[in-house]
Computed example of a mutant assay.
Amino acid sequence: MSRIYDCADETARKDGIADAASAVRRGDLVVLPTDTVYGIGTDAFNPKAVANLLETKGRGRDMPPPVLVGSMRAATALIDDLGNHGRDLMEEFWPGPLTLVCTATPSLSWDLGDTKGTVAVRMPMDPVALELLKETGPMAVSSANKSGQPAAVNAGEAIEQLGDEDVAVYLDGGETDSPVASTIVDLTYAVPRVLRSGAISIEQLRAVCGTVIGELRKGRTRPKKAEGEEDAEQAAETTGAETTGAQAPASGTSASEASKPEAHQAGAAATEPETDGSQGTDRSES
């Protein structure tokens, strides 16, 4: 039976975050609010937990979840190469509705699904989510819904779809701020490329980066994909908040608490978000 906490009540919120953090450490699933839609998440470094997350949603390994972090420090520990503009984009738009697809740190011991060495990372603008991420470190988080169904924008919608057997803890943070999707930007190329349009406009991105390639629209001829690009676009498939699609190294296998990288400790040690950003998300991923 799931445990549900009303985060509008200060005592319940404190108890709920403590319970959710313990559940994540055990490899259980929790539902949490984000600045976009509600997400269902677990320990990003626990392959069995991530597999359970995908099964609960009705997804396969070909649609790996994104990773939410509680600080820029935690994000950079997961990323091998931020490209020329990653740091600037983080400082401008995080926490907020911007997901960055980057080359993952090769030494990470995790398995988010069938990927080719990339990871989609976001720092959400939601106090409950950030408090939980501060306790747990990076979490694999997808939208709190069954695959193909609308993403939940409140705890009641999440409970209706996911039930009370597979999810250990529901953190009820009220209605989400906006049903606008996070913008997903691929930084694995010399020029940043929008994989999914969302709350951050391309004009805002260009104000930071200069040249940005816009989202490929239906009906236009697709250029030949470079290795790994197709997986990045699958990861960017409509999810929500900070879920958003995310990816992980193909070489990731098993992991243990003792083998978690600095990113996990950095996320757990973070206190306040390091930057301010806009808010927004979509109804398909957190």
Rank of each mutant, 00 (worst) to 15 (best):
T103I: 12
G96S: 15
K116S: 12
S107I: 15
M90I: 11
A120I: 09
A155T: 01
A155K: 06
S109V: 07
G148P: 10
E91L: 07
R122C: 08
P127K: 03
A152N: 02
K116D: 13
A120L: 10
P106M: 10
M90K: 10
V141C: 04
M90C: 03
N154R: 10
P97D: 11
L112F: 03
P150Q: 12
L89V: 05
A155V: 09
T99R: 08
W110V: 10
P97I: 14
S143L: 01
A140P: 06
V141K: 00
V141I: 10
Q149I: 07
K146G: 05
V141W: 02
S142G: 11
A152R: 04
A120F: 13
M123G: 00
L100W: 02
A129P: 15
M90V: 03
T115V: 06
V119L: 09
L89G: 06
C102Q: 14
E135Y: 09
T105D: 06
E135P: 03
F93C: 00
L112K: 08
A104K: 05
V153W: 05
P150I: 11
S143I: 03
V128A: 02
S142F: 05
E157R: 07
N145E: 09
P150T: 02
G117V: 03
D88T: 09
P124M: 04
L130A: 02
L100A: 07
L89N: 02
M123H: 07
E131H: 04
D111C: 12
P124I: 09
A144N: 04
M123W: 01
C102W: 13
P106Q: 12
G113L: 07
T99E: 11
P97K: 04
T136M: 05
N145D: 12
T105Q: 10
V141F: 01
G96R: 08
T105A: 15
P106G: 11
V101E: 08
A144V: 03
L100E: 07
W110P: 00
A152L: 00
A104N: 04
D114N: 08
P150R: 09
L98Q: 06
D88V: 00
